[in-house]
Write a protein that binds this DNA or RNA. Structure first.
Lengths: 142, 142
DNA sequence: TATTGTTATACTCTATAACTATA
DNA sequence: TATAGTTATAGAGTATAACAATA
């Protein structure tokens, strides 16, 4: 049996471990509707903020603009996102989901929800507490 | 203001976000005693399980053996880990920390602890609850 | 001068598969 | 046959820096 030593008391360590395990379980389960993990977050942000610029998208998901460029290009080439030059700022692009993108996001949401139902089961009636604590961490450390 | 939509209710999503934020904060703060994140976990496992094989190390931190090889080589070349052929199984290597490795791990532990004290502050008296929930997730989803 | 987005480039982390040497 | 470890290789994900166009 492997011992973990002092790490066992560390929130940061368990955050990493739990995220790792959770993501692997999701990837195993999702299987079919394949789209890389970052894409899901990006598409969700676009859906909820139609017309958003690439820069703003990058800020929303904490990625550099140079990371956003190929990501958006891929989503556009898959027919999931539409990319139109802004009329008010000609440097800027406006992003929206296509109807295919919307449908795909629904599929992904279903897979994510199935996964999250498992997580819900695991944490039981403590879900609200857990999410509240995680949000606190997100807000405090930015 | 960016809206997140349904994701906001998902444990998996907040796990990812909180881990991301936490890791970035740690990286910012750690600054000086530079060693990549996976190394910390590896060295901790070696410290607490002296003589462990590479395969067992890989299992402990959920990495393939081909990921372990260059990782161990780096730690050896930095003088932090000693790597000795096993006398009982000649295919196998035994790993232990050098005294420099032990000292380095102490430094890293201090940085990690400083970071974790911030996390502790954020979650307050809910720390035990949070760790318990994260462990539940780790155990349930393997 | 500052910002949006692209490109070139590079680095890290990771795994798969084929291999060797042992078991 | 199976396991420990290495190597070659490839694919994600990410960022920095230099740049063009526009503000």
């Amino acid at each position: 049996m492997i011992k973990l030593g002092m790490l066992d008391e560390h929130i940061g360590f368990h955050l990493r471990l739990a995220q790792d395990v959770s993501f692997r379980a999701y990837a195993r389960q999702a299987g079919a509707p394949h789209l890389k993990p970052g894409r899901f977050a990006a598409m969700t942000v676009i859906k909820n903020n139609p017309g958003i610029s690439q820069i703003a998208l990058g800020r929303a998901i904490s990625r550099d603009k140079s990371t956003i460029t190929p990501m958006v290009r891929e989503l556009v080439s898959l027919g999931l996102v539409e990319r139109v030059p802004s009329t008010i700022d000609r440097r800027s692009m406006t992003l929206t989901l296509t109807s295919a993108g919307d449908a795909m996001l629904d599929d992904l949401a279903r897979a994510a929800e199935a996964h999250d139902r498992r997580l819900d089961e695991v944490v039981g009636d403590q879900k609200a507490v857990l999410i509240e604590l995680l949000k606190k961490i997100e807000d405090a450390l930015v």
